[in-house]
Computed example of a mutant assay.
Amino acid sequence: MLARGVCRHLRAHDFVTVEEFVPARGLRVDVMGLGPRDEIWVIECKSCRADFTGDRKWQGYLEWCDRYFWAVDRDFPAELLPEGTGLLLADGYDAEILRMGEERRLPAARRKVLMRKFARHAALRLQGLRDPGMLSAYRP
């Protein structure tokens, strides 16, 4: 539900989003947003303290985005979240940016690879919605 609110909020800022995006083997981000100036944001949704403390991979996501954010609900203990990362307060309907993540611009070559992966991911999702049996029949 947090991801839905995050995606809605980012769309209001002219971002497009995909959920459960794999930038590299072994990594799966909750939401990746692509902005109007080709900026790439990664947003990890955390529902509780245990969900956050059990996440051992989040720092590996930093090299795959220009800005990194956490999305949490009102009851989440936000003081646990590392400085320098962004913070969104979210629910199933919307979100609000409380803290902007530090900008670390991606190298051009990595940005190009991510943009291509993002486009393919989004197109496959759309095809899967239009023709659900097609994706499983043609998986390489």
Rank of each mutant, 00 (worst) to 15 (best):
P107R: 13
A123N: 12
D94K: 11
F69W: 08
K112N: 05
R37V: 03
R105L: 13
L62M: 11
R11G: 10
R116A: 15
H9F: 15
V42N: 05
R105D: 04
V16A: 02
I43Y: 01
L89N: 04
A95E: 08
R28E: 09
D55W: 06
P36S: 10
I40V: 13
R111S: 06
E103D: 00
A95G: 08
V18W: 01
G84S: 06
D66K: 05
A12F: 01
A137T: 08
S136D: 14
P36M: 00
D131G: 00
G128T: 07
I43L: 12
F15I: 09
W64R: 07
C7N: 00
R11K: 13
P77K: 02
F52A: 14
V18R: 03
A119Q: 11
R37F: 08
G26Y: 04
R49P: 13
L89P: 13
G60C: 01
S47E: 09
L87Q: 09
C65P: 04
E83Y: 01
R139Y: 13
R67M: 06
L2G: 10
S47Y: 12
P82K: 09
E96Q: 15
R110W: 06
L80K: 01
F76W: 02
V42I: 15
R56Y: 12
V18E: 10
A108M: 03
Y138K: 05
E79G: 00
V42Y: 03
T17P: 05
A12H: 10
P77E: 10
T17K: 02
T17W: 03
R25A: 11
F76T: 02
F15L: 07
Y68W: 14
L88G: 03
H13P: 02
K57C: 02
L81I: 05
V6D: 00
E96K: 15
G86K: 01
R25H: 11
Y138G: 08
L27H: 12
V29S: 15
E63K: 12
R116V: 08
D75P: 01
A3D: 08
F76A: 05
G84R: 00
L10I: 06
L62P: 01
